[in-house]
């Protein structure tokens, strides 16, 4: 898992970016570490694919953590974490409704804010504000290096006591 995970510290949160296949394992590890309060799951259209951002807080010491994973447009499937934190149930439904991200293992994945019969996933960038397809929109190519690739280790010359800023894949 470590080769496909990037950990960084943004403002006051630990942010993990993982491969979708490692998402579930990381979430189970975080649940075991005591992160019990689910703040939100957000879906986000990155231009090259869809991103799921899970945000958690640990009530004991108020530590915050964010887990992000990217999936391609063609097959946007992410494992559901509703069994670990029931409070994400509606957030996952909303991410499905707004962006079309499907959560494998969700107990009741149906639309929540739009009508059940609609086919539109409005927050995708290919639609304009009114829900109509933008004529010239094209998906960006998948980024290289991958979003979850850990940054290369700092070169050795000096500064051995300083912790490297990019974070370590651990």
């Amino acid at each position: 898992m470590e080769a496909r995970m990037k950990q960084e510290r943004l403002f006051d949160e630990d942010v993990y970016t993982v491969h979708p296949e490692d998402y579930r394992a990381l979430c189970e590890r975080l649940a075991a570490e005591g992160y019990d309060f689910p703040r939100a799951i957000s879906g986000l259209d990155m231009g090259y694919g869809l991103r799921v951002t899970l945000q958690l807080t640990r009530m004991k010491d108020l530590a915050k953590v964010t887990v992000r994973t990217d999936v391609p447009y063609e097959d946007p499937v992410v494992p559901s974490v509703t069994d670990l934190w029931p409070g994400v149930e509606w957030y996952e439904r909303e991410a499905y409704d707004m962006l079309g991200i499907r959560f494998a293992g969700h107990p009741d994945l149906r639309r929540i804010l739009l009508e059940d019969e609609w086919a539109l996933h409005p927050l995708l960038k290919r639609y304009d504000t009114g829900g109509y397809l933008l004529p010239g929109w094209e998906a960006k190519p998948w980024p290289d290096p991958e979003p979850w690739a850990p940054p290369p280790p700092e070169p050795e010359p000096e500064a051995e006591g300083e912790a490297s800023e990019g974070g370590e894949a651990s």
């Binding site: 739009l114 009508e115 609609w118 086919a119 539109l120 639609y127 304009d128 009114g130 829900g131 109509y132 397809l133």
Partner: peptide, 11 residues
């Protein structure tokens, strides 16, 4: 109807 299927141009 949802946009795209309502038979009009965008607002």
């Amino acid at each position: 109807a949802e946009p795209g299927k309502d038979g009009r141009l965008p607002v």
